[in-house]
Design a protein around this nucleic acid. Structure first.
Lengths: 177, 177
DNA sequence: CCAATTTAGTTGGACTACCTAGTAATTGCC
DNA sequence: GGCAATTACTAGGTAGTCCAACTAAATTGG
């Protein structure tokens, strides 16, 4: 990743180019998409930096934390894949490495002989606990976005995700027909 | 990528977990970070889907479009790396493949014998032009985020990027000192 | 002017994610 | 009951990202 700040905002520059080429109807969407992609790069870089001392990447951390919050600290591979929204082969890959590091263990599923349970080891639980403390302190609690904007950002993205079919609302109240 | 929508919002669920564990000061930041990462996954998936018929990925497209907007349709590798905010080795990698496909060519820099110019070929220009039309129509102009929220989103992220040192404001007026 | 430093780019290695294709086990339907 | 379709996972290959280390060329400083 390049370190030196650019002398101007490349996204605003792209927006100018879009307008100059007569693509006004797509300019705002283009700007939003590139903004989201760039913002993700920045926050992910911070997360990876914070996790590096623990020998974890964000992909590893997410899986460990998911197990940590699950009953019996275990989950079938397929459930992890669905919950993390990643390809099943990615889960296989990450579990392979986490298992080599002794942070998780593969176990037989009690009833379904096709399935494999991933189990968080004590080492894994300790590791993810320490990583979370660092992450909370150095990244999440120090993002640098004012609370009001943070709230709007999350809400806008939540609406977008729901419309994109990312999840469906749980029936908390009586269903409106 | 998993396709079926989850029965509830996993990010809201994570937020509940964070609050339940007494990490209230980090909960909003965690929520924002995971929201950004998930939103990027969704929009990037749409972009990649739209680009697939053209044999392009977003990384390839970005480089081609950057060259397309540059003088003489050419740029030194280092400039592309800085502008795209990716590691120099990533540029080497992408240029290798684009060159194999005949969409760009490596040329000698006229004055600096260390540097390599990447030049957009006519084929490359035609390809990126058609890809942009599709991208504008199918993705950017059809994001599904209301205009007002789109504007706020972009502005919030722009502020965040500036504070993160992504870019510095251009000296549009006489330099202070 | 020449040595030391910086800059530009590539190579090799590691990680993550995806896709395709395969095996094994389970479920569903006649 | 038994065959077909589905589900769970793994293997192999491709793409993209990064880092560390390296070569070559340009710049800088004494």
């Amino acid at each position: 990743m390049a370190r030196a700040p650019l002398p101007m905002d490349p996204i605003a520059e792209a927006r100018r180019q879009w307008l100059a080429h007569g693509w006004a109807d797509a300019a705002d969407g283009m700007t939003a998409v590139t903004s989201l992609i760039r913002a993700q790069q920045i926050v992910l870089a911070r997360v990876e930096t914070a996790l590096k001392p623990f020998g974890l990447s964000f992909a590893r951390y997410e899986l460990l934390q998911l197990l940590n919050f699950s009953h019996d600290r275990a989950l079938p591979m397929a459930s992890a894949s669905a919950r993390l929204q990643v390809h099943p082969t990615s889960v296989t890959n990450v579990v392979d490495r986490l298992e080599q590091d002794g942070l998780v263990r593969r176990t037989a599923h009690p009833t379904d002989r096709r399935a494999t349970l991933v189990l968080l080891t004590d080492d894994g639980a300790a590791r993810v606990g320490r990583a979370t403390a660092t992450l909370n302190r150095d990244v999440f609690a120090a993002l640098g976005i004012p609370p009001a904007q943070l709230r709007d950002l999350v809400q806008t993205i939540a609406r977008f995700r729901r419309e994109a079919g990312d999840f469906v609302d749980p029936p908390e109240l009586p269903e409106p027909l």
